[in-house]
Amino acid sequence: MTSPTPLVVLDRVSKRFAGHTAVDELSLSIPTGVVYGLLGPNGAGKTTTIRMIMDILQPDAGAVRLFGQPSGGRAHTERIGYLPEERGLYRKMRVLDVLVFLAEMKGMERRSARDRAAQWLERLGLAQWAQRRIDELSKGMQQKVQFISTVLHDPDLVVLDEPFSGLDPVNTQAMKDVVLDLRRRGKTILFSTHIMEQAEKLCDQLCIIARGRKLVDGALGDIKRTHGGHHLVVGFDGHTGGAAHVFADRALVSKVDNYGQYAELELAADADAQRILAALVESGARLSRFELQEASLHKIFIDLVGPDAAHAEGGRSDA
């Protein structure tokens, strides 16, 4: 999960717009080969952060380092794929031409861009549309063309700003497949979202920000453990053995709700559910059920951000 030089490093990066601070001393570090989620409510500063990584905006303070070098996205553009939050393509251009042009912007040769674009169109079922104009395509097809343009040049880092917004279920699935396929091939994916369920399914690591500040970051599991509390449900098959003894161990269990054949536990801080399982088995209890119930990321998010801030604030679409 970790590598000696993280792929993306933000070092106390700040960005102010007239009258408000969009990003405030944000530091984060994204290792190679992970799916990294940048989570936050609308207006939290996700897009601004991504734009600073992409060199579209310059930070007022702090530094962005990519691929171990003190430079933003433009210097590494051939290694980065970027899907902006608001989608759009040249409406009057032909599909294949758009893809080739955008690949050229990423430093690809025309000919190889053509071949690769044709392969991708084939793969996503758009081959017969290659010579049609963008505005003849349905919205879903245009979205597919835009994914293709993001990954056509086989980037090592893929930056997706709200990739699932506005997608129909079929394209949502296609998008997930693309993300997972990229990860399998060792690519790094940074994506922003305000939909926690998606983040929970896809992210290895994440960072939650609100009002431009970082609330928490790290591996998904760690965050859940430290912030979610750990709920454990235990069911017995007649024999409880020395279970009561195990439950009384405050090093393992901080709270217990024991119904005899069924108990709900809250794990002590730093406690490992595996040790409880081992202790219960050792105590002679026969278990019919042993289930960790993690708090959902959604709940953690609401707890951290606060119910008010979890909703859109200010409505600045570019923040």
């Binding site: 734009r51 553009t77 970027y82 409406r91």
Partner: peptide
């Protein structure tokens, strides 16, 4: 204006100055 309204400009500006 076309590149601005379609937001292609973001992709472009992250690729060239």
């Amino acid at each position: 204006l076309e590149e601005k309204t379609t937001r292609i400009v973001e992709v472009l500006v992250s690729s060239l100055r």
